[in-house]
């Protein structure tokens, strides 16, 4: 069984739709989020959302409240009626609690006041999308403070990419496909190499040890990649 997708690098980035009439903010977020594996599409008013969604399915929508035409709260209600599954974060320069409460009441997943640091936006987006299937069916797994995208074979912590070898990535993908389950060395060997486990071959244990380090897991008392005595290993994902 080959766990490594041959076209993983061709997989599309996570899609975000920004609806805001501030084109400087478009450019800023495009530059910043692009560095973190997001693709941004931008619209300058809510009236363009309907047509956009007929052709594309973003994973996330950032929606400004004050825009030309109908305001963001109107479009939030519309989105929650017709595209309920897409998470929406409201953006606003106003700090009024009333507006924020109204937005959350209408179903916004979060609310961010401008000006904001793009890193704060990124953290909030990740928190909302944690383990949520993306528009293309993909899932980002949160393992402790690390995030693993199995399609892109991308591991990241504190906005830093952690390089994985092909073997480490394949093993982590296999664990993420079977969270909480005990995986025997036989099952891991079969999945990774297509053959039975050879007791003298320590490569699985060594790969596990390297993965623990890369996941910032404790080697002696691991919290995420746990050893199950005489059986194998188990990955515990954050709920």
């Amino acid at each position: 069984m080959n766990l490594i997708s041959s076209n993983a690098s061709d997989a599309p980035a996570r899609q975000i739709l920004l609806v805001d009439d501030d084109i400087l903010l478009h450019k800023l977020l495009e530059e910043y989020l692009c560095q973190h594996d997001y693709h941004i599409d931008a619209l300058q008013c809510g009236e363009e959302i309907s047509e956009f969604l007929q052709h594309q399915q973003p994973d996330f929508i950032l929606l400004d409240i004050m825009m030309p035409g109908k305001d963001g709260l109107h479009w939030l209600r519309w989105l929650k009626k017709y595209h309920e599954h897409i998470p929406v974060m409201l953006l606003s320069a106003k700090k009024s609690a009333q507006e924020r409460l109204q937005g959350l009441e209408f179903g916004a997943d979060d609310y961010l006041t401008k000006p904001f640091h793009p890193k704060e936006l990124l953290i909030r987006i990740r928190n909302i999308m944690r383990d949520r299937p993306l528009a293309n069916g993909r899932v980002i797994h949160k393992i402790g403070s690390s995030f693993f995208d199995p399609v892109h074979e991308h591991l990241e912590r504190d906005n830093t990419t952690i390089k994985l070898t092909t073997q480490e990535s394949g093993l982590l993908q296999f664990f993420c496909q079977n969270p909480g389950q005990i995986l025997t060395r036989d099952a891991i060997s079969l999945a990774l190499y297509g053959n039975d486990y050879q007791p003298m071959n320590r490569s699985i244990d060594m790969t596990i040890n390297r993965l623990r380090k890369k996941l910032d897991d404790n080697a002696t008392t691991p919290r995420y990649l746990c050893t199950v005595w005489r059986k194998g290993y188990r990955l515990t994902l954050d709920s």
Binding site: D22, L24, M66, A93
Partner: peptide, 10 residues
Amino acid sequence: AHRFKATAHL
């Protein structure tokens, strides 16, 4: 001014 303020801190 309201629109420009979102990025003026940069």
